[in-house]
Design a binder for these strands. Structure first.
Lengths: 343, 343
DNA sequence: AGCAACCATGTCATCGATGACATGAATTTT
DNA sequence: AAAATTCATGTCATCGATGACATGGTTGCT
């Protein structure tokens, strides 16, 4: 590992002069500059970022913490953040939080040790008050889920609006028994999507059947099981609103297995192949790349202008992509509740 | 940001003693230890990794460079590496190389500036000789693709064997006109898969029709176009071997659009929903999590025991997951070549 | 008692880059 | 010509943690 001192010795100058050449300081003669530059080339000098950023006090690295890097949504977000960060010569440190909320804090603290210059987080727990400690050290931006017990910039999708739109879409196709499959209401995102679902039912004058509200899943398999439970009800739903792409990946195969593709399905969150399945799945698209882009831009802006004021709360629009999975008419395919319970 | 010195002052000792307490040095009295620990708690001391690793000379960070973090295969690999690294208190810096081979070197050099402790790379270019410079600085492990013009540990899938098996699978289902869709043969992986395909054809006594070898795609859309070209041939194939999951994601919809689900399809690389599509897609599974795990373990082993010797070349087995997409019989569904050209 | 061994703790230097300030030479101003 | 200004370059200190070594005190052994 060649250092500035090595280059300096080779070029017959002091380390400081090498530093000046490297940073394009105008106070260097053309002659010296050239000698230093050729010495750098000969020795293949590469600056030690660690030394530089250590001196500056903060790193040229942005921390990203999401529930799961392998989830297509977060993978796309991560990629976009990386591209945006690279434009500013910053690298990204990525961490998966997993699905145990109690581990969130310790995972974040491990990440923070690396003296990150900013943090983008999609939290999984219901309490981020532990972040207060870092509040002044580096900017923090939340994505996908709002912070709890903590104040910070956030960029979230319109969960309420999207869920409402999805439910209305099903209603407009004649469905009245609409189930929702989701994770725990501890997650603000899920709570909002549930509220959107309830609001849509309410404004259409439909009563809520709590048997059709299946919360508490935490992966695709759970969601598949929930789906089977729903269809085994005495009065099964004719449509399912999956509040999460991860769950849709479980629900869809479950419907296939049960041979119940007559059941309408709408997914909050697009997923690979959703448009190629039979039937292709109607979704609420969240545009992960846009989320990544705006989050990265905000972090970078906060880093370069710590004093500047920005809008804290940012709701990103979502849009419904209509495909085939809601086209079936419930009147034709669903068994009549009355007959069902008697027979 | 509280430093060791702050804690030291508060506890009435020297910074060195704080360092000792922090690192569980036994040469500290119980009394002092307690005073220091409570001072650390009061001031919420968090060690500055940057300072520590700067002194050590290398970072507690592993660099990962893959063609695309958002690709499901690499996303899964990345996640597994992260989990393995975290067990050793290491973080990961992730970079997407994109699809322009000429940018590979500069992207890697940017990553290296961060003084990484090790590098895991799935290269996209045909020349990694530029890595020689870092050879002694930190361990380098290749995944998915073998290094070119450079020596390093690598863990690659059995491209030749897998492609051979895939092709044989198609042959055993009666296919004789089998197309291959892939990217450039610049990529060693692709070259090996092509060779496997050719070897299987050869050992079955089948001639190669170069119209059926469609290389040079670089994304799903290209692959879809290649697929359409193939089916428009005077003597179209009855089966397609997609040498890459990324391309399968383009080929499958193309077949659907053309209403040619009678064409058999086998994909090198499993992908989300492949098992739920109609027909579900037979694949060669590469087990990305296993790749990530072994690569991470090797890097960590190399970091902690630089002198130890390991096996350089590692070929990981792949296995064929049979689904529906190869079940159609070519004799029944494919137009007879002879009739076709005449008619 | 006398000396070695051990122990708790402190001091200093170090890692690489760079800001603050110094130095000495050349050039310009009065 | 003397003073002031500009300029190229150098020296030193610094960021936080820690290894090498020092110091002064206590214990143990003969």
């Amino acid at each position: 590992m060649t250092t500035m001192q090595d280059v300096a010795t080779r070029a017959g100058v002091s380390a400081k002069t090498v530093s000046r050449v490297f940073n394009d300081d105008p106070h260097v003669t053309e002659d010296t500059r050239e000698r230093v530059q050729s010495a750098m080339r000969e020795l293949k000098y590469v600056p030690n970022m660690l030394a530089r950023t250590f001196r500056e006090g903060k790193s040229a690295v942005i921390g990203i913490a999401v529930p799961d890097v392998a989830d297509p949504f977060f993978a796309a977000v991560t990629k976009e953040i990386e591209l945006a960060a690279r434009e500013q010569d910053m690298a990204i440190v990525v961490t998966s939080l997993g699905d145990d909320p109690s581990l969130e804090q310790s995972i974040i603290e491990t990440t923070v040790r690396h003296q990150i210059g900013g943090l983008i987080i999609a939290p999984i727990s219901a309490d981020q008050s532990y972040l207060a400690r870092w509040q002044d050290s580096f900017p923090i931006v939340f994505i996908d889920r709002t912070p709890s017990k903590f104040n910070a910039d956030y960029f979230v999708e319109d969960d309420f609006g999207g869920a409402c739109e999805a439910t209305q879409h099903l209603i407009s196709h004649g469905h009245t028994r609409i189930a929702i499959v989701g994770d725990s209401t501890e997650v603000p995102t899920t709570r909002l999507r549930l509220e959107g679902y309830l609001a849509a039912l309410d404004s259409a004058g439909l009563k809520v059947d709590k048997d059709l509200v299946m919360l508490g899943s935490h992966d695709a398999d759970c969601a598949a099981a929930a789906c089977k439970t729903l269809l085994a009800l005495p009065e099964p739903p004719t449509a399912i609103f999956s509040s999460n792409a991860r769950f849709s990946i479980g629900v869809f195969p479950a419907l296939q297995t049960l041979n119940r593709t007559d059941i309408a399905l709408i997914s909050y969150g697009d997923f690979t192949m959703a448009d190629v399945l039979r039937p292709s799945v109607t979704v609420i698209d969240q545009d992960p790349r846009h989320v990544g882009r705006v989050a990265a831009e905000r972090i970078l802006a906060r880093i370069s202008a710590p004093a500047k004021r920005f809008r804290r709360k940012n709701i990103l629009p979502v849009n419904l992509i209509e495909r085939q999975s809601c086209q079936s008419s419930p009147v034709l395919t669903a068994p009549e509740p009355g007959l069902m319970t008697i027979g």
